[in-house]
Structure formats: structure tokens, C-alpha cells
Simulated assay, not measured.
Amino acid sequence: MSTPDSLPADDAIVEATRRWLDRAVIGLNLCPFAKAVYVKEQVRYVVSHATTPEALLEELMNELQLLSDTDPEQVDTTLLIHPGVLTDFLDFNDFLDVADAALEDMELEGELQVASFHPDYQFADTDQNDISNYTNRAPYPTLHLLREDSIARATAAFPDAAAIFEKNIDTMEQLGHEGWDKLDVGPAR
């Protein structure tokens, strides 16, 4: 596990995340909804210095409230990047239940949701190095805070939103590990 002193500077963490978003998420069209908010600069990037799940939960709740209170034209979505905590994927995955409980406790269910990206992301019933896992692999553990209204508008505009997952798997299989590595977006195998 990285220690806070061994982590890159916040600017470098955000730059790596922006590169991943630009080259992988948008460049490979893994999320057809991402480009609009990215181009309009409505993505908020927050680097957490939390070193415990409890501290991360506090930051998550603050960011959820901030997103809820902010005009979507200013900030439509938030990437809470937390390189110093929950670096183990199983711990990270368990934390997602805590994140969902926070949404419920804050009465933000139905308004906001939390999606997840991790350098070691692994879908159930896949091998760790299966290329399909890379659709959700980011340079650092990241909680993606989204507005339900934005998701609803985006899916209404997209003819077959349910097919995105299958299309992403096909894209990743065509790209392969070598192609992913050439994107230089981390994490590498």
C-alpha cells in the first residue's frame, strides 16, 4: 500500500485521471455520456488525502452534499479520487455498501448515485486479468458521484443504453491488453 508521502502530487493524480477519462472512457466511448460533461468542464476532480475508510466516508458525504447543493451547470459529476485508502479492491468493493448507506442516510437516494473505478477492478466470475475488467479500471481508486437526473437524460437520448456493457466488452476484447497498455492510462498489467 502507498503511504501519503509516497503518492504523487495532487496535480499529477488529477492529470492521470483526466488522461484516463480522455483516452479510455471518452476515447474508447466506454461511457457515451461522459464527453458532454467533460467538454463543458462540469466534472469536479477531488483528491482525497484520507488514509482510513472513516475519513474517506466523511469526505464522500461532504462531496455528496456539495454536489446536491450545486447547480448542475456548474458541476454535473464528481470524481473523488482516493489513492491513500481502499487500495485493496475487495476492501474498496465492501466500502461501496457504506457509500450506498450514506446516500440513504443523507436522503439523497434517487437524486445521486455512486459508481466505482479501481486499478484492480474485477467483475464477479472473471479472472483478475480478464480484459473486460479494464472497463472499470482507473489509475487510482475513484468514487464517481453522479446525478440521477443526468443519467436519466443521457439514457433517454441513447437508443439502447442497456447494450453499453456488452459493447464495452467487445471494445476491450478487440483492444486487448497490448492496446490498453498503448493508451498509457494505467493501470498496466
Rank of each mutant, 00 (worst) to 15 (best):
residue 54 E to W: 04
residue 59 E to Y: 03
residue 122 Q to P: 02
residue 116 S to F: 04
residue 97 D to Q: 15
residue 57 L to C: 02
residue 98 V to W: 06
residue 81 I to N: 09
residue 61 M to F: 00
residue 107 E to Y: 14
residue 120 D to T: 00
residue 75 V to T: 15
residue 103 L to V: 06
residue 129 N to Q: 15
residue 123 F to Y: 10
residue 111 E to T: 12
residue 83 P to K: 13
residue 71 D to Q: 06
residue 39 V to R: 15
residue 130 D to G: 10
residue 47 V to A: 05
residue 125 D to N: 15
residue 108 L to K: 06
residue 60 L to A: 03
residue 74 Q to E: 15
residue 71 D to I: 04
residue 84 G to N: 15
residue 83 P to C: 13
residue 140 Y to S: 04
residue 99 A to D: 14
residue 37 V to F: 00
residue 128 Q to Y: 10
residue 92 F to G: 07
residue 105 D to N: 15
residue 141 P to M: 09
residue 130 D to L: 06
residue 53 P to C: 06
residue 93 N to C: 04
residue 80 L to V: 12
residue 56 L to S: 04
residue 142 T to M: 13
residue 60 L to C: 03
residue 81 I to V: 13
residue 60 L to D: 05
residue 107 E to W: 10
residue 53 P to V: 03
residue 39 V to D: 11
residue 38 Y to K: 11
residue 98 V to L: 12
residue 95 F to S: 06
residue 133 N to W: 01
residue 129 N to Y: 08
residue 87 T to G: 07
residue 99 A to E: 07
residue 44 R to Y: 02
residue 114 V to G: 03
residue 103 L to K: 06
residue 107 E to D: 15
residue 144 H to D: 10
residue 140 Y to Q: 04
residue 48 S to H: 06
residue 129 N to M: 12
residue 127 D to A: 15
residue 136 N to L: 09
residue 122 Q to Y: 02
residue 66 L to E: 14
residue 39 V to H: 05
residue 133 N to R: 04
residue 130 D to S: 12
residue 86 L to K: 10
residue 122 Q to R: 12
residue 107 E to K: 14
residue 52 T to F: 00
residue 74 Q to G: 07
residue 43 V to Y: 01
residue 76 D to C: 02
residue 130 D to F: 03
residue 136 N to H: 12
residue 93 N to H: 10
residue 100 D to C: 02
residue 140 Y to T: 05
residue 144 H to F: 09
residue 134 Y to N: 03
residue 63 E to L: 04
residue 122 Q to V: 02
residue 80 L to R: 13
residue 62 N to I: 10
residue 113 Q to P: 09
residue 112 L to G: 05
residue 35 K to W: 01
residue 96 L to R: 12
residue 52 T to A: 06
residue 65 Q to W: 12
residue 131 I to C: 07
residue 137 R to T: 10
residue 119 P to A: 06
residue 123 F to W: 06
residue 129 N to T: 15
residue 114 V to R: 05
residue 124 A to R: 12
residue 96 L to G: 11
residue 35 K to P: 00
residue 90 L to R: 12
residue 94 D to W: 09
residue 69 D to G: 02
residue 120 D to V: 01
residue 77 T to V: 09
residue 54 E to A: 15
residue 82 H to I: 10
residue 41 E to L: 04
residue 131 I to P: 11
residue 52 T to R: 01
residue 117 F to Q: 00
residue 90 L to Q: 09
residue 76 D to Y: 08
residue 71 D to Y: 05
residue 45 Y to D: 04
residue 36 A to W: 02
residue 92 F to R: 05
residue 138 A to W: 01
residue 130 D to Y: 03
residue 76 D to V: 00
residue 84 G to Y: 13
residue 85 V to R: 14
residue 60 L to P: 00
residue 115 A to N: 09
residue 34 A to N: 08
residue 68 S to Y: 13
residue 98 V to G: 07
residue 129 N to H: 15
residue 34 A to S: 07
residue 134 Y to K: 07
residue 101 A to F: 13
residue 108 L to R: 03
residue 142 T to V: 11
residue 62 N to L: 12
residue 138 A to L: 05
residue 47 V to R: 01
residue 77 T to Y: 07
residue 107 E to Q: 14
residue 93 N to G: 00
residue 59 E to P: 03
residue 65 Q to I: 14
residue 81 I to E: 09
residue 122 Q to L: 05
residue 127 D to L: 11
residue 107 E to F: 11
